[in-house]
Design a protein around this nucleic acid. Sequence first.
DNA 1: CGGCATGTTTCGCC
DNA 2: AGGCGAAACATGCC
Length: 269
Amino acid sequence: MPEGLEAEIWRAAATPLVGRTITDVWVDERIAPVGLADTITGAEITSVDRVAKVLLLGLESASVDTMLGLHFGMTGRLEVDGDAPIDHLEYASGADRPAWDRLRIWAGIDRDDPRAEPRHGPALRLNDPRRLGRVSLDADLLHIGPDAMTLTARALKRQIGGRRATIKTLLLDQEVVGGLGNLCVDEVLWAAGVAPHRPGDQVDSDSIVAIARACRQRLPAMLERGGSTMGTLSPELRSAPGMCPRDGSPLVRSKVGGRTSVWCPQHQK
DNA sequence: CGGCATGTTTCGCC
DNA sequence: AGGCGAAACATGCC
């Protein structure tokens, strides 16, 4: 579930936390730096941002000035004030077990708001069955590439350079482009008419333009509709590849860059 | 039981 | 040195 689009949905959902003070923290210490809870308890949440697939909370207090980074891995999901903005797909059987919680942050309401009611549950809850997600402090995000949603052809061309890895591998590399995951890359390449296994240095200029345009146009549309699973290459189509929605020829399911890829040999060259 | 999963990190080989 | 690809990580589901 979590690609850049999901992180963006969670960013928007978490903005009401700005201005609150962290009163208590519980964390699964296997996925966080030592002493994280003590470090951030008492700090005010001063900002909520997203970089690529990472959600960032700015935290400030007399003794702390840091950025808390939430990485969701393959199966992480977020709840804010008891509300999950995205439902499961992979674990769609309604499973949401407390045992899978990895981080719980209780944060007080705005001190000066007389209408505010006390809250009992955690303000923020990171639930992640597979535990591939991570919580970090001051993560190094300097090398993250330009964000996919606003990607320009010029920037994409520069980032790809003369590299010979497959275009799919390159687009999945967060240092090349920020925010794309397996589903979005397949969707973008399908829309742009580029085969996933084409080497980066053999992607012509027109295709670069098409990929960047597909990122700028399709990703915001998918975001609007609910995230990475809302592309033309639907989860149903991915799991049982049928006919290409564009030209009606058979879709192919194969491994590219170690990831399951769905594409149309007819119009993706 | 075997295989597979929306993601990163690490290791070894050029 | 650095790009590249495969393996590893961890757990649940079909």
